[in-house]
């Protein structure tokens, strides 16, 4: 260890350090400001978030899993069946261990499917027991079962006329808050009154006559004048991933994620700048290469080029 006492000169801090530090510092400040403001935007209109904060926070504190992948159906399932055989039942949330009823989406290759609720699971024979019988039939090897989170994300809409069990159309008072189904983005609605509750998928919407056409008939009957209502729900059947903010910058959670992503990436521009200064200005190639190595690791990590599974 050597100590040297300053006389009239302070040690000069290399410019590359100052540039490196300032890039990280100011980008971190910007990220912090974004994550302070963005949740307020999300709160002003809860329904306009990618995922509704009411349900999201409840689910997070109930032990929601963030990393679920769809499972293949291992045995054919007929209409009315209440048991599904899957590849690995242990991957699903066990209703006995979490404070909620795990919901699943069953979907075949043709894109038709339904939502169901798990009331029990058996890991030894990989079976899921559902709260009620299936509406459709599904073929093993051509059907995927995924745990989903269902969020009630739009405001309530009222029925304009009574709907009978088995009926596959709904007459609505308004369709202002119901989206049209589009390819790859199925729209689900929840019908509920004081005694019944079910989820149905929209096949098409006739906005002129305010009619919703469903993919399957209703299980229960609902009366227009007895407190029955319809709510569009958001079904999340896969993890949103880190870059969902790109298409959702006007939404509170999308903007918040931008702040998080920005903060978690500040090392990249700082390392690239340091590498450039070391390489071209200071001609210290070994440090330039090391800075590039760390930058490459960040890029690989950000882009997810190395799979985690």
């Amino acid at each position: 260890m050597e100590n040297t006492i300053a006389k009239n000169t302070m040690p000069k801090v290399p410019g590359v350090q100052i540039v490196f530090g300032d890039i990280i510092y100011w980008l971190t400040v910007v990220a912090c400001i974004i994550v302070c403001v963005a949740p307020l935007i999300g709160f002003i209109s809860m329904d306009s978030n990618v995922v509704n904060p009411h349900y999201l926070m409840q689910d997070v504190f109930n032990g929601m899993k963030p990393d679920f992948e769809a499972q293949d159906l291992k045995a054919d399932a007929s209409p009315g069946a209440t048991v599904l055989v899957v590849k690995d039942a242990g991957k699903f949330d066990n209703p006995e261990k979490v404070d909620r009823e795990p919901q699943i989406r069953i979907m075949d290759d043709a894109g038709s499917g339904e939502l169901a609720t798990i009331i029990a699971l058996n890991k030894s024979n990989d079976t899921l027991t559902l709260d009620k019988g299936l509406i459709n039939s599904y073929k093993a090897g051509h059907t995927e079962v995924a745990e989903v989170t269902v969020w009630n994300s739009h405001g309530e809409q009222m029925l304009a006329a009574d709907a009978k069990a088995g009926q596959d159309t709904l007459a609505m008072a308004s369709l202002a808050r119901v989206d049209d189904p589009s390819e790859g983005q199925p729209v689900a609605i929840m019908l509920q009154d004081d005694t019944n509750r079910e989820i149905a998928s929209i096949k098409s919407i006739d906005r002129g006559n305010k009619i919703i056409h469903l993919t399957a008939g209703l299980t229960n009957a609902y009366s227009a004048g007895a407190g029955a209502n319809i709510t569009q729900v958001t079904v999340v059947d896969e993890v949103k991933g880190g870059h969902f903010w790109k298409d959702n910058l006007t939404k509170g959670d999308g903007l918040t994620q931008l702040g998080v992503v920005l903060g978690c990436s500040v090392g990249l521009p700082a390392m690239l700048a340091a590498a450039a200064i070391y390489w071209w200005k200071e001609k210290v190639r070994i440090h330039a290469l090391m800075a590039m190595w760390v930058a490459v690791l960040i890029i690989v990590s950000v882009l997810g080029l190395l799979a985690t599974e």
Binding site: A38, L56, G252, V261, C264
Partner: peptide, 9 residues
């Protein structure tokens, strides 16, 4: 982050 384990809110 990429696995969705970062919940923004």
């Amino acid at each position: 982050i990429l696995a969705g384990a970062i919940i923004p809110l």
